[in-house]
Design a binder for these strands. Structure first.
Lengths: 167, 167
DNA sequence: CTAAAGTTTCAATAATTACTGAAACTTTAG
DNA sequence: CTAAAGTTTCAGTAATTATTGAAACTTTAG
């Protein structure tokens, strides 16, 4: 496998994986491309490499910027915008974990709470609903807190966590 | 909010969440329904409550069984099959985590390895590709091992992990 | 100011994914 | 064995989601 094939394989794998955990293919592919690029890329270069339209590129770049994964760069004396992604994998994971927590886990926790705090009318069905949704709520909340703690230290959270868990 | 509303809200939230992390809506809803039900349900009952077709119910139930989340039950003297889900949230999480590791993380790790082990032709581009995909590979592999370790103890893995990480 | 370069928006359309329903199949009671 | 009860399959269709491309908009050099 040569460079071009390997790069393509990486971008495609990342694209597929992305859609598995809720970000779309193009968005994941753009991120992958920037992740292995030696310098920031312009919109033209991205469109060209990934064979996607200008509109698609623009929208997905904006989402990536929203997530805090990609940043705009300006080259001296150039009008065009260039884009680059966070290159440190741990920092990248931190950003993604925080965003997912905020966008998905926390709203779910909130809804679960609304469900399990309904008034108990004494029937077995209601009792079961309350019991089970409360269990799920507590798990989700704890997992979320755990995730945030693990990931909230900018440096070496991974090594630290592993050390603690494995001993 | 009364019982019926709360139950519906739970099923819908779970359905939406499910699609966010890669299982489809109907599948997540069936699981949710069984999760708060006081007894195993027949296919008819599931179809009826969720207003989905027989075919859809059958296929998604099978997937849930494949995942090991749902089991068939037989009632004495009855021909019909009844279905129930794992009711313990920690056990449920364990099963899901294991399946996701096996189906998604491990194949991704494998592909990343194929990419970062290409022969280094000495160019900056190749070096960057190797460096970055190796970093991602190592992170994914470590995270996967970590997840499996955390979750591989049937009892109280959550409490134990929290204890270790928070101190 | 204008023109050129660049970016964003969004309605139309393509691609993907999920769902239905009826037919085929399987199992079991009699 | 047959008929009834139940389950599965899958081609067709519906619903959803992603993508295009052209027009509108923004910015800046001159």
């Amino acid at each position: 496998m040569n460079y071009t094939e390997a790069k393509l394989k990486f971008i495609n794998t990342w694209g597929t994986l992305g859609s598995l955990w809720g970000i779309n293919k193009a968005m994941a592919q753009i991120q992958a491309l920037l992740f292995v690029s030696t310098s920031p890329l312009s919109m033209e270069e991205i469109m060209d490499e990934l064979k996607i339209s200008r509109g698609n590129t623009s929208m997905n770049l904006r989402q990536l910027i929203d997530w805090g994964i990609v940043t705009k760069e300006f080259k001296a004396g150039e009008r065009k915008e260039y884009f680059s992604t966070e290159k440190n994998v741990q920092e990248l994971t931190r950003i993604i974990a925080k965003e997912r927590s905020r966008r998905e886990i926390q709203p779910a926790v909130k809804t679960l709470k609304e469900v399990y705090t309904i008034t108990d009318d004494g029937t077995a069905e209601t009792k079961e609903l309350i019991k089970q949704t409360k269990a799920l709520h507590d798990l989700a909340e704890t997992a979320d807190i755990m995730l945030n703690k693990i990931v909230s230290h900018k440096q070496n959270w991974l090594t630290k966590s592993i050390f603690k868990i494995f001993n």
